[in-house]
């Protein structure tokens, strides 16, 4: 078993309602995988359970061969699995630079952190100009870039992205996905959830379709894009 992330029959319940049921999926090292589905299909719940923000009801989550099923969020984060939450979650009353440093909170290798900071600024020049500005004053797209840059500061092996295109203008969506592809090109595995199925399938190599909290279809992105059921339900054909 060479999967970096292996979710096996995961179930998550919110006050008696099963938001996720027996969901299984895998992400290989360096792979880009998307999880698509309608609003309320259980995408965000899945990511929250994987990252430790929610305790699963049943099933297991393994990261790099080790169980992280009931680890608290800060322990999961320290193992190299970083979630960029829905709505970006920047710290509004911290500067851009401080937000980035929070990404490296769990690390102690000062010299390497400084090098990664330079790399993030090189990847995201807009942030360089605004490094002293409060994050709460950035535009939505800039906040999304900051959230991605902050995630990179943790040196993750797997990046979980929750709706990175949400609320952004089309040009900004392009810019953000460009950055995501460049991060992935550096060897970081990505599990992306998106309502914009077209964009997600175009970006990722493989995909899973989630309906009512469980996986109903999976396969290479090209296959899913060609699947009539997927086209009708998610690609607007």
């Amino acid at each position: 078993m060479s999967a970096l992330l292996a979710i096996n029959r995961l179930s998550v319940a919110y006050g008696g309602i099963h938001a996720v049921r027996e969901l299984s999926l895998e992400v290989a090292p360096g792979e880009m995988v998307c999880l698509i589905g309608a609003n309320g299909a259980g995408k965000t719940t899945t990511l929250k359970a994987v990252s430790g923000l929610l305790a699963p009801h049943g099933g297991s989550v393994h990261f790099d061969g080790q169980s992280i099923t009931r680890l608290p969020a800060h322990e999961v984060a320290r193992r190299g699995l970083t979630l960029v939450p829905e709505g970006r979650g920047v710290f509004p009353r911290m500067s851009v630079a401080e937000n980035l440093m929070m990404g490296a909170y769990a690390r102690r290798d000062r010299a390497e952190i400084a090098r990664d900071l330079d790399q993030v600024y090189a990847l995201l020049p807009r942030l360089t100009e605004r490094r002293a500005q409060l994050a709460g004053l950035l535009s939505g797209g800039e906040q999304q870039m900051l959230a991605l840059g902050r995630a990179m500061m943790a040196r993750p092996r797997l990046l979980l992205l929750d709706e990175p295109s949400m609320g952004l203008a089309p040009l900004m969506v392009q810019a953000v996905f460009d950055i995501i592809r460049r991060i992935a090109a550096g060897g970081v595995a990505v599990l992306l959830i998106e309502q914009n199925a077209h964009l997600a399938l175009k970006t990722c190599a493989r995909g899973y379709v989630l309906e009512n909290g469980t996986v109903t279809l999976s396969g290479p992105a090209a296959e899913l894009s060609a699947n009539p059921a997927v086209r009708q339900a998610y690609l607007g054909d």
């Binding site: 939450p85 979650g89 710290f91 929070m102 769990a106």
Partner: peptide
């Protein structure tokens, strides 16, 4: 101090940064 400020702004996001809230 940084962890305290981060936690004050969002407990959930702070924990995602590896902060033991």
């Amino acid at each position: 101090g940084r962890a305290m400020r981060a936690t004050a702004q969002s407990r959930q996001v702070a924990s995602l940064m590896g902060v033991d809230v």
